[in-house]
Amino acid sequence: MMTIIECKNVTKSYRSKTIFNELNFTIKENSLTGIIGRNGVGKTTLMKMIAGFVQESSGSFEVFSERPFNSLKVSSNSIFVDDLMPFPQSMTMNDILNECRRFYFRWDHDLALRLMNYFSLHPQLKIRVLSKGKRSTFNAIIGISSRSPLTIFDEPTTGMDAVVRKDFYRALLKDYIAHPRTILLSSHHVEEIEHLLEDVLLIDNHKVLFHDSITALQETFLHITGKEQLILKHISREDIIATKETGPYVILTVKNQLTDDTLEAMRKDNIRISPISANEAYVALTQRTKGGIDDVFK
């Protein structure tokens, strides 16, 4: 499998603020990876470094085997989509689509027009008149239609309503199946994108906290539901990542490292063991030691 992005010991800081400290990962060709993390961990900075918009402070980045900053190869083979794509305000959407057609060598103009029609965007309108949601939809259409070998979406659904968001993700998936390419997609709504993803790159505390398949993320933890005293006969307190009380029972999130014997013994004791969603796993991994919001009100 070919590597498209290789990130070695990359450090990034703005003045004295460290964003990334010794970041290491690789992204393989034709995979769809979710870049996830809490607000302010640097998802956007990371994706901008990959696209060559921002320079790393130290370490090395290779995208299509070149340093992305100032690379024409990277710029012609990639697209970075967010809600602020800086198109000239006086251009109509039609003008912009025609320019894209000239620039992106894999551009599918027919697809772009069909998507414009489906999402009720009138090509003759100037982009400055678009609402936030419509603007994001237009940018997303460009992102899909460009078919760029490296397509980066930074929070692409900002402002879109629920129906449009769902349609956009479906369109992205269908076009990805028909025309495989490397896609990076950031969102803090993990539950909204988890079905789409093959891999997850989870950024936390200036580092890569987790980078593996979405299935592996989900299988990192288990939920255990039952009487706390009873559960603690089988596992020790150190195994517990998170606790949620619901009436007489507790729902505990634990690392999926228990032996079959322990699991069997718990089942015999009427303790329910169930899988956890990828989103819950993400929340458990990025949980702060400060406890939950409930603790603020104690």
Partner: peptide, 13 residues
Amino acid sequence: YQLAEIFNVNPAT
């Protein structure tokens, strides 16, 4: 790929 379409999931999954 057909399953990915039917279930609206990533083909790898």
